[in-house]
């Protein structure tokens, strides 16, 4: 047997103590990614710390008027939560664009942040992969890289982060609440995931002995002018080739603030604050959207099979901004793009 020990954490402190005690321990919650990785021999934890009984599965109001998502809320419960649907429809929309109902019923919000890349090579232990085995090389750079990153890549890794939910959270500027041996701390969403650099095996800035306890959504939910536009090879159960979470704060036809986060193009949900600011106090015209799109994608680099993503991402940004500005978000169940 692929032996591992199993313990059930009694509270957050106990969970942290368990994970800190063993370098090869992993938390297990929904298990929708970890179990696959174990079956494929990509990860082999010696200990599983079951956190599913921790009291972290509620959505509550924060004092600042925002909402707190307990780390163990399922993706499905979050997406269909009345407050989320009403106040943060961008988040709801992004969650429902991902995976399948069965997976969303199991997957947790905290786990969603921690899912690993879907790079073919990462999952196939017969191939070199710096993310799986540092120093072995990247098979994707000169290999089959149709689904790979065009922004923020390194010579070591061109994997993408596969989450849809995280793209919305990046746009909403959520804050990740974590608890470790040294107590609690907060990580702004933009700082949570990392670029591959020369440490592609490290996906994010969560320390090995830390647990995500909650995700805080700031008060501003952009419920009027938003969209999550996901472009993919089939209408459901496919990862994004390119996705765009667009959120606008509008005053008539004038944009006061714009948030644009991209999925499927980088090792983390991609934002470019400087480019987004170009839309401040500008009118919602396709020329302006075009300029922002150009600015966001300016430094993109393709690797052959994925080079099409550069043009596609630009067009997707323009379309998403148009949808958001018009207050006509992309319906998730509809393959027709508004």
């Amino acid at each position: 047997m692929n032996n591992f020990s199993y313990t059930r954490a009694s509270d957050v402190g106990n969970a942290v103590a368990e994970i800190a005690a063993d370098n090869h321990a992993k938390f297990i919650a929904g298990g929708t990614n970890l179990i696959d990785l174990m079956k494929e021999n990509v990860v082999r934890p010696t200990r599983l710390v079951d956190i599913t009984r921790l009291p972290l599965n509620e959505i509550t109001e924060n004092d600042d008027g925002g909402l707190r998502l307990g780390a163990l809320c399922t993706n499905a419960d979050t997406a269909y939560n009345e407050q989320i649907e009403r106040r943060y429809p961008l988040l709801s929309s992004a969650i429902l664009a991902g995976a399948s109902p069965q997976l969303r019923n199991m997957a947790t919000d905290g786990g969603n942040l921690l899912q690993r890349t879907r790079c073919y090579y990462f999952y196939d232990t017969a191939t070199p992969c710096n993310k799986r085995e540092p120093g072995t090389g990247c098979s994707a750079i000169n290999g089959f890289n149709r689904i790979h990153a065009i922004l923020g890549t390194s010579d070591e890794c061109i994997a993408t982060h596969p989450s849809d939910m995280c793209v919305a959270l990046a746009a909403l500027e959520a804050v990740v609440q974590v608890t470790g041996k040294n107590g609690e701390r907060v990580i702004p969403f933009a700082d949570f995931h990392r670029l591959p650099g020369d440490t592609p095996h490290i996906d994010n800035n969560l320390k090995p002995d830390e647990i995500i306890t909650a995700i805080d959504l700031p008060k501003q939910g952009f419920a009027e002018n938003y969209t999550y536009l996901k472009l993919r090879d089939r209408a459901s159960y496919a990862f994004a080739l390119v996705s765009v979470a667009a959120a606008l704060d509008m005053d008539g036809d004038t944009i006061k603030e714009a948030r644009i986060a991209l999925g499927g193009v980088a090792h983390k949900p991609w934002r470019n604050a400087e480019a987004e600011a170009m839309l401040n106090n500008q009118s919602a015209t396709s020329e302006n959207f075009q300029k922002v799109a150009e600015a966001i994608i300016r430094d993109a680099k393709g690797f052959g099979h994925n080079t099409f993503k550069i043009g596609l991402a630009k067009r997707a940004i323009v379309r998403a901004l148009a949808q958001a500005a018009a207050g006509k978000p992309q319906p998730i169940a509809e393959k027709k793009i508004l």
Binding site: Y120, A126, R146, R234, A235
Partner: peptide, 25 residues
């Protein structure tokens, strides 16, 4: 089926990445 000619190996060897239509298609 995606073939990596460097490795001589099929790479999308699962139903997540080998695409057949879903009902919505």
């Amino acid at each position: 089926t995606y073939t990596d000619h460097n490795l001589g190996r099929f790479m999308n060897h699962n139903l997540a990445e080998y695409h057949v239509p879903v009902n919505a298609d």
